[in-house]
Write a protein that binds this DNA or RNA. Structure first.
Length: 573
RNA sequence: CGGAGUGUGGCGCAGUCUGGUAGCGCACCUGCUUUGGGAGCAGGGGGUCGAAGGUUCGAGUCCUUUCACUCCGACCA
């Protein structure tokens, strides 16, 4: 391909809303173009080439793992979503629309319902199972806040796969584990440094899920990793060994008899710790939220955790089985009969539900709000009622790994893949069954598997760039090599460049020839910005029979005789 | 949705407070020179000032309404 004929609108200017390297370089390098803000992007020729490459790698590995590609309708009938119960639950990210006859549709953000519908009409017998279907298709999610370019657009290319099995064991082995292996191969081929972590199952439902996280400082997800073993988890699902009590000299661990204590003006954990001269480990923090349920039902819920812990909102949301948790104002708390700053789980007003962190179970000698103004209760003993307890807290850096006793730390990741063991979450409500060996109808055991194809372009660049631009990994680069003719008006340079270009093309190499009448500086800058792994510069050293070979990673340059350039390039590909 | 801000040629911005004939940089077009790190000179094209309404002799500027986008928090591949 000739640069002069290709639409590659590189710019010097940084788009003012772009903060991440991937966003900046993909725009500046002419890979993508923003469409009227708001998380919509056009893929220009360079971006399309990379996208197709990533897509092709995913397809190859999935097909090799026994999956079959299909292509489902993008506009999907709302009735299917009502069957699964997600029409309401999914929230505003789901773009709902009506046709001219007022029939309701949604733009598919994911396609569990569609795929179950496909299979329930076509698969009847256990003999046809397992089956694993996927598509690579544009999805639409009306994101609350699109940002970071391709990282969180509203429209994006996603591979979504679904497997159907006769029982849970087969789903785990031939579905879930098989996909984990396929995903490893895909991300390995893409050249990414990633980590597989335990994850929350979120809105899609089901149990047992893992995320593939590309490690990058700019990642939107916080992941917890162990510095000693291979444990890794999204903060939303991370576990730790119970937090040990502070170490006290001799027998100075606090002991108290239960009583209410006058604590005027002491409304924060820090103030409380200071007031009683006690480590916040022994305090109970109350975090109030409003939980939202289907059909507009709202409940006030209190979460009780240690004073030195922080609430992990996804865990908390799961603990009360809510669709969503939102913040609640102090006024609303007072209106419900609560006393901000002095809340505890004893003598709670009617209608307020609560959960306590599981690590508090069996503890005593704690201090907690007394549910009346200016009083805290000391010497609190935790009640022994199982349904009140759940895992609620965010694992903190320095906490202890529950697997090996090592130290946990936080790091940031970009979620590029997610695999779920779904079970019968969709097949059952949607009446999708097959006949088993005994002729009995059973719902399919399902797995579901996603890869953010367009997001991967951003993830690759987040991990592979320098201060000049992109550095594509060998298997993802839009071209394998770029030939830069320094000055196209010099016949000799032009001829040497054209000759090498013809040779490489004939050899089947994806090669870009920069034959533009630009100055050398702009061509080099564009090369560095676009980030093709290898370049050959035909320039002023041609007089001595030399050309220059540049490796984008590190920008190392070596001179090489022109007459053996072709072989030298081929050797480096 | 809560908080903050911005809408002016393709892109980035000034002009708005204090109303008086729309400007700068980049990009683009033409010509000449230049060609190893985003060139120089000369000439040129391109803007319903987000939208609607109002005040005024006169509105990019003042008032009202509205829309969109961006940034900081809750969603997810």
């Amino acid at each position: 391909m000739r640069f002069s004929h290709m639409l590659i609108p590189t710019t010097k200017e940084v788009p003012n809303d772009a903060t991440l390297p991937s966003h900046i370089y993909l725009i500046r390098g002419g890979f993508i173009q923003n469409v009227g803000g708001s998380g919509l992007y056009n893929f220009l020729p360079l971006g399309k080439r990379v996208l197709d490459t990533v897509r092709a790698i995913a397809k190859e590995e999935l097909d090799a793992a026994g999956c079959q590609e299909v292509d489902l309708a993008f506009v999907t009938p709302a009735s299917l979503w009502e069957e699964s119960g997600r029409y309401e639950k999914y929230g505003k990210e789901l773009l709902r629309l009506k046709d001219r006859k007022e029939n309701a549709f949604v733009l598919g953000p994911t396609h569990e319902e569609m795929m179950v519908n496909l299979v329930r009409h076509t698969v009847r017998s256990y003999k046809q199972l397992p089956i694993n279907l996927y598509q690579i298709k544009t999805k639409f999610r009306d994101e609350i806040r699109p940002r970071f370019g391709l990282m969180r657009g509203r429209e994006f290319l996603m591979k979504d796969g679904y497997s159907f099995h006769k029982d849970a064991e087969d789903m785990k082995i031939n579905g879930f584990d098989n996909m984990e292996r396929a995903y490893r191969r895909i991300f390995d081929r893409l050249g990414l440094d990633y980590r597989i972590v335990e994850a929350d199952s979120g809105a899609i439902g089901g149990s047992g899920s893992k995320e593939f996280m590309v490690l990058a400082e700019s990642g939107e997800d916080t992941i917890v990793v162990c510095d000693h073993c291979s444990y890794g988890a999204n903060i939303e699902a991370a576990k730790r060994a119970p937090k040990p009590a502070p170490v006290y000299a001799d027998d100075e661990a606090p002991e108290m008899t239960r009583t209410d204590f006058h604590t005027p003006g002491v409304t924060t954990i820090d103030a409380l710790a200071e007031f009683f001269h006690i480590d916040s480990h022994h305090l109970i923090k109350a975090v109030a939220k409003k939980a939202l349920y289907d059909e507009g039902v709202e409940k006030i819920v209190l979460f009780f955790i240690r004073g030195n812990d922080a609430l992990e909102e996804t865990k908390a949301c799961n603990a009360v089985d809510a669709n969503e948790l939102i913040d609640i104002s102090e006024e609303a708390l007072r209106a419900a009969g609560l006393t901000p700053g002095y809340m505890g789980f004893n003598a709670l007003p009617e209608g307020v539900i609560f959960r306590m962190d599981q690590e508090l179970r069996g503890e005593n000698n704690l201090i907690m709000g007394a549910n009346r103004a200016e009083y805290h209760t000391i010497g609190v003993q935790m009640p022994d009622v199982s349904e009140h307890y759940a895992d609620l807290v965010a694992v903190q850096a320095g906490d202890v790994c529950s697997h090996c006793g090592g130290t946990l730390r936080h790091t940031k990741g970009i979620e590029v893949g997610h695999i779920f063991q779904l079970g019968t979450r969709y097949s059952e409500p949607m009446g999708a069954t097959f006949l088993d060996e005994n002729g009995k109808a059973k719902p399919y055991e399902m797995g579901t598997y996603g890869i953010g194809i367009s997001r991967l372009l951003a993830a690759i660049i987040e991990q592979h760039h320098d201060d000049r631009g992109c550095i594509w990994t060998p298997n993802t680069a839009p071209f394998a090599v770029e030939i830069i003719i320094s000055n196209v008006k010099k016949e000799a340079e032009r001829e040497a460049g054209e000759a090498l270009y013809a040779q490489l093309k004939a050899a089947g190499v994806e090669v870009l020839l920069d034959d533009r009448p630009e100055r050398f500086g702009s061509k080099m800058s564009d090369y560095e910005l676009i980030g093709i792994p290898l370049a050959v510069v035909i320039g002023k050293k041609l007089a001595e029979g030399q050309a220059e070979i540049i490796v984008r990673e590190g920008l190392d340059r070596v001179d090489h005789p022109v007459d053996t350039l072709f072989d030298a390039v081929m050797k480096r590909l």
